[in-house]
Design a protein around this nucleic acid. Sequence first.
DNA 1: TGGCGGCTATTCACGATGTGAATAGCCCAT
DNA 2: ATGGGCTATTCACATCGTGAATAGCCGCCA
Lengths: 163, 163
Amino acid sequence: MAGPAHPYGLYREFDRELGRVWRIGQASLYARMKRAEEEGLATVEVAETEGAPDRRVHRITAAGKERFLAWMGGPSERVRDIRLEFLSRLYFFRRLGLDGLEDAVSLQKSALASRIAALESGIAGAARSRDEYWRLVLEFRRSEAKAVVAWLDVCIATNGRKV
Amino acid sequence: MAGPAHPYGLYREFDRELGRVWRIGQASLYARMKRAEEEGLATVEVAETEGAPDRRVHRITAAGKERFLAWMGGPSERVRDIRLEFLSRLYFFRRLGLDGLEDAVSLQKSALASRIAALESGIAGAARSRDEYWRLVLEFRRSEAKAVVAWLDVCIATNGRKV
DNA sequence: TGGCGGCTATTCACGATGTGAATAGCCCAT
DNA sequence: ATGGGCTATTCACATCGTGAATAGCCGCCA
């Protein structure tokens, strides 16, 4: 996405930057990139180097770009995935200088809004049926979801300030 | 802990109740109970039944009880684990009629308090060094941690009301 | 000059973990 | 009598991540 890359180099970069959020092992990144190739999301070309082992240089395909951008734009379905996914998206938005962060934020916020609405109806139901435990569980989830919404607002504000 | 149990029966119970929080497959529960036996946390006795296959009845040992109670009391180190762990603890506190929930809550709260303090010093540092991304990441984590603290207060209040 | 440590780059073998399906006997309904 | 469903356990397999192995080349220091 930011030009051709080989796993080793990408790992060095990620380990310093994205690695603070999304810890990924070297061998794991190799496996993912190999899989991306098998799925036709990237093409691989072996490039010779001077005084170093050959590199398996990966180039993203149209299908790969599409998949990546869909992932960048789309909201995370599960609240617990936002921690990893949205913070990673944020990293890529900044790293690649992409725009559309505002859209991604609003999409995620509206996904969270319906999630919260569902949780609140569940909470009301649990309260009605005196299911204290279930009510607490749902309140936990609502609390988390609301915290993410509040953070997304901070996120937009910060980004707006920068632009 | 609530008397002897065999995996199949325990699964039926968990699947209905705890399963709403901690989804665990049947084969997975079997594996865990087998491992508990291997680690000396439970003893197993094969019991014959009338018109049904034999049961591998598990009985918790002293070591197992100790381990379980330590887990019940101790806070989750990572905020993201609280979702699963603390809600499971809450389930067992209620299911087994144990007391000590207040202690577990305060322990978790103080663990979160130091976590939040560390995050805030990190946020200040990131702000100083103009590392916007890292600041947002840390603010995300603080936001989550604070939401859990707020929920823990609700949790205590609810439980207090019941007693 | 010789060899040792460290860097680039990739691969491999393994362990943990979870899941669907297989197995097998028994009961009940049609 | 027989097919479906329940109790109960096990198996084989896919996924996923990790540490270590491999291998060539470079620079450093004795």
